[in-house]
């Protein structure tokens, strides 16, 4: 298992989980999101190829109402 932080919440994941698999698991596949891994943007096109590692810090964002 690996331990990652997603939007400030700790989460245990199976080894060699891809970003795409995590997004799928969170029910966000196909949704308009943007994802940052350890401060770097992960383009949607690389979701399948990027494997998460122990200690990764992820931010997942969406558009909301604002002024």
């Amino acid at each position: 298992m690996i331990s990652v932080s997603i939007n400030g919440t700790a989460r245990q994941l199976a080894d060699s989980t891809s970003v795409a698999a995590l997004v799928e698991e969170m029910g966000l596949a196909g949704k308009r999101i943007a994802l940052e891994r350890n401060g770097e943007i992960v383009p949607r096109s690389s979701f399948p190829s990027q494997q998460l590692a122990d200690g990764d810090k992820l931010e997942v964002v969406i558009a909301v109402g604002g002024g």
Binding site: N7, R11, M26, L28, K31, V60, V61, I62, A63, G66
Partner: peptide
């Protein structure tokens, strides 16, 4: 139209 960028739900509120 302006929008804000905020943390998504991470599975706790699907749909």
């Amino acid at each position: 139209i302006t929008i804000a960028i905020r943390r998504s739900n991470i599975g706790q509120n699907p749909g």
